[in-house]
Design a protein around this nucleic acid. Sequence first.
DNA 1: CATTAAGTGGACCGGCCGGTCCGGTTGTGT
DNA 2: ACACAACCGGACCGGCCGGTCCACTTAATG
Lengths: 211, 211
Amino acid sequence: MPTEERQLRADAARNRARLIEAATSLFRERGLEVGVAEIAEAAGVGRGTLFRNFASKEDLIAAIVAELMDEACERGRELLDAADADGALFEFLAEMLGRQQHDRAVTDAIDDTWLAREEIRDAHAEVVGVLDALVTRAQREGTVRGDIGAMDVLMLFKGLCSAAAAFAHLDSSLIDRQMDLLRASITADPVATPLRGRTPTLEQLDAAEIS
Amino acid sequence: MPTEERQLRADAARNRARLIEAATSLFRERGLEVGVAEIAEAAGVGRGTLFRNFASKEDLIAAIVAELMDEACERGRELLDAADADGALFEFLAEMLGRQQHDRAVTDAIDDTWLAREEIRDAHAEVVGVLDALVTRAQREGTVRGDIGAMDVLMLFKGLCSAAAAFAHLDSSLIDRQMDLLRASITADPVATPLRGRTPTLEQLDAAEIS
DNA sequence: CATTAAGTGGACCGGCCGGTCCGGTTGTGT
DNA sequence: ACACAACCGGACCGGCCGGTCCACTTAATG
């Protein structure tokens, strides 16, 4: 139903596109807490126009975050074709991290509250799926330890992004070190540093998230 | 000057104590975003009384967070006398993590915005100091890699707490795994997984935070 | 008990934010 | 050119939150 409900008028379509563009760039730069007033202003339209296209701010966020997550999936799938398996996984994480430093939208959305939204949960599941493929491949062909899963890596990543945001004033070399430490943790010897519990499957995640 | 500016009246002292108690427990349970109205109500006083004791909500938060950070330091110093060095460091981190899962106040405060406040910055510096002592001792006598510093560990920890908060719906075994992964990263072989850059000193941190 | 200054708390203020509404505008089919 | 529906946008609403104010209460003192 996003295709065309009833053929928008030319100006309406243009305004909708501007809105999406403005919201995307503002959410990226400053996170999901930017106000609707600012988004409408940046798009050069009134607030009423925003709410005619998206019934609530939440809907707007869901639409844009899902789109951004899809982009990430795209890139992840490209990297699945890369030569070395380790490289693909870490390249993916490094790229995402690099983006998140100037793009807080997706990181903000990886969170209990937003994962309750269906669109975001679906897009998120897709991301986990791609990440799982990257992790599995790296485990088979690379040096990544066998006892972790996509969800473990995603949590590490989410933590790294949050920490990076909290210490934004520090220069980026700290972030580089954190990324290296993340790498160290998921390439460590599983015998020397055993993990408690087991990594959850996607189904378990969905079940938990719905509850 | 917190001792006694002018000898409080009995009821005033009692109300102040109630406010601190209520604010501490609410901040712990639900983070720093709880409203002043709720705090005053929980303390059984009016909002005016709250603002007479603390000029702003920010002042209230600063006072309470500094106190909580001091408590953490206390515990850290106790553990410095513990038998094994590794154990002390990880016991400290595990305890803090366990607390943070039901005590969001300190985690919320480890953040650019709040570290700008002098009291919090001072208390935070103290925490980093204790953590540095624990790390250094573990490096000398334990298996912790030599190329990390207190700040690296603190960032890992902050990340872990943020991720835990974001995925609060999942059962705690995921958090245990993350803690184990943290341990893996800081006990990994520095040659096999080298780190870029260098860990910052406390002085560099202060300089960066003031700017 | 009387006096008084310290203390109290709830009404009130202003600003912010998500969301609604409607008088005016503009694209579009005839 | 006309008419009409689709569309626009800013004025407006209600709720929330940090913070102020002042008429009233109460602890301390002699």
